[in-house]
């Protein structure tokens, strides 16, 4: 059987490039106005997975949990070289904190069953928690190697990886299967034109139904036919819900989340009383004088 690895990725709002349009008049962020992007470090994780595909012939499965339109991020992964894609989507997954998220992802990995490696980006830019990777490893009872920069060796049962630590780096050897969290360590390959041509037709079941005017499988047998055709051409994006991955409904979504958000405040620039200093010799002389007088300087 071909060796498989799973890359878990996330679609996130682009918090790095908050443009003028995404700001409200009060100076706070309007999240809905932010474009959705491939979480940057997940792209690094995908690239590492694709390098392992090139080096060792791995089959790369990419999976994400999110709303139906998160299939977009899976297609972006297929364009770059992923072999298979899984969308975990279910209303029950909504409102999950990192514990409930890692539980759902662990059910997904167990459903895939046969894997040597799980790759995740170190953290997602919407939360910056870096918790899902280690929690997922714990749920699967496999070792974790965090902050990986490079896979040095990969054998049948062992992996050697270089990772960053405080003030330097470390080479760790771990048994397989293992989970790696990946930092910004490589140049993710661009989408391949040929693959775009092919995989832009890749669909989830929901997308197929929508494509046919929200038809239903029971009264539109052509859906079953089309599904078979897409599968044959490897253009089928698996769409799995909580039942399909055997998730305990008490442990997913809001119910499975021990943390609750009490309050959200937007960071508004509070205007401090700023003393305007003229960039002239006398303006600066006066400033330095003041700072010496109040013992800040000297």
């Amino acid at each position: 059987m071909k060796r498989q690895l799973i890359v878990f990725v996330k679609q996130v709002p682009d918090t790095k490039n908050i443009s003028g349009e995404a700001m409200t008049p009060e100076g706070t962020v309007n999240r809905a106005a932010l474009p959705a992007i491939f979480n940057p470090e997940d792209l690094n994780a995908l690239e590492l997975g694709l390098e392992l595909k090139d080096r060792f012939g791995y089959s790369v499965i990419v999976a994400t949990m999110g709303p139906p339109n998160a299939a977009e991020v899976l297609r972006a992964a297929l364009y770059r070289g992923a072999d298979e894609a899984i969308l975990l989507t279910d209303k029950g997954f909504a409102g999950a904190d990192t514990l409930a998220t890692s539980y759902a992802l662990s059910c997904c990995a167990k459903t895939v069953k046969n894997y040597d490696l799980i790759l995740c980006g170190r953290q997602a830019i919407d939360g910056d928690t870096a918790q899902v990777g280690p929690q997922l490893a714990e749920k699967l009872e496999i070792p974790q190697v965090c902050y990986v920069e490079e896979v040095i060796e990969l054998e049948k049962k062992k992996i050697k990886a270089k990772r960053s630590i405080e003030g330097g780096f470390e080479v760790l050897e771990s048994q397989l299967p293992a989970l790696l969290t990946v930092v910004e360590c490589n140049e993710p390959r661009p989408k391949a034109a040929k693959r775009i041509m092919k995989y832009k037709k890749a669909k989830t079941a929901s997308e197929l139904k929508k494509f046919h005017g929200n038809a239903d499988y029971t009264d539109a047998p052509m859906l079953t036919e089309e599904e078979a055709k897409l599968k044959e051409k490897n253009l089928w994006i698996h769409e799995w819900n909580a039942a399909k991955i055997g998730a305990d409904l008490q442990r997913i979504g809001m119910k499975g989340s021990p943390t609750k958000v009490k309050k959200i405040q937007s960071v508004v620039l509070e205007a401090t009383e700023v003393v305007n200093v003229e960039p002239t010799g006398s303006g600066i002389n006066k400033l330095i004088h003041e700072l010496i007088e109040d013992h800040t300087l000297g």
């Binding site: 904190d97 990192t98 514990l99 890692s102 939360g127 910056d128 928690t129 870096a130 918790q131 899902v132 990777g133 280690p134 929690q135 490893a137 714990e138 749920k139 974790q144 965090c146 902050y147 960053s164 630590i165 405080e166 969290t181 989340s257 021990p258 943390t259």
Partner: peptide, 21 residues
Amino acid sequence: LKGRELAPRIASTMLAGLTAD
């Protein structure tokens, strides 16, 4: 770096809530 890889592993076993940073 150590704390951020250790705490989630522990929280997951304990089924405890964990808030980062």
